[in-house]
Design a protein around this nucleic acid. Structure first.
Lengths: 111, 111
DNA sequence: AACAAATTGTAGTTTAGTTACAAAAATAAG
DNA sequence: CTTATTTTTGTAACTAAACTACAATTTGTT
């Protein structure tokens, strides 16, 4: 493991990053998407919050928020919501995979 | 910029990471530290939430949470709260700096 | 115009968080 | 062991954030 990776390892706690889940109001502030719209997108299946049980409040992780930003981008470019969802879904496969790999790189014990 | 850095750049949106601020309940779930204790530590100046105005709710970012975890570690090792705070404060200088550098590495436009 | 897709509004309710008290444990000092 | 200090915990009364479940409006298509 080289120096850069070690620095990264010391700094970036991916386990922690995964647990940093924010409320819908915060997501709205971050992305500029109204909360009402976020809930609608979720109804449509565009995004999945970690709400767990019914009656509890929605929580979104890093990748969820990223996904919303991407969907919004697509829509701004003129795609319909459905088309945007499909496009972004593909993109997310790669991102999820990359994220998993990053977790490995950073979390692995020294070689 | 090498391939690894590029992958990292595509994946890790540091601007977004900075904005991922969680509520006190979430922090409590993540760290195992009771909310009451978190507020006490904040009174003592051990941590600083991004609560802005009075009456508003506390928000904690990645580094805030990291700091709490470190303080808890120190306490578990037998340090007093004050000693733990001082120790961790030093550690955080480095972490903050490393974080700033990471932001640069990842956010810089291609060379 | 007519239909469907997408977004927005909101009343009433639940959940999460706040402050400002005080009390109880735990640790250190005399 | 007693007193003082630090640290942690409890909780009542209140405010802020989020939820659901309706419906209405706006936007885009045929």
């Amino acid at each position: 493991m080289n120096e850069k990776d070690q620095n990264l390892k010391a700094l970036l706690d991916v386990d922690l990053l995964k647990k940093l889940v924010v409320g819908i109001g915060e997501v709205s502030k971050i992305t500029g998407i109204p909360t009402r719209k976020i809930r609608y997108w979720e109804e449509k299946g565009a995004i999945q919050s970690e709400s767990g049980a019914e009656g509890s409040t929605r929580r979104y992780n890093y990748l969820n928020v990223k996904k919303m930003l991407l969907i919004q981008e697509m829509i701004d470019e003129g795609f319909t919501l459905d088309a945007a969802i499909k496009k972004v879904e593909k993109r997310m496969v790669t991102l999820n995979e990359a994220f998993r790999k990053l977790a490995d790189t950073v979390q692995d014990t020294d070689e």
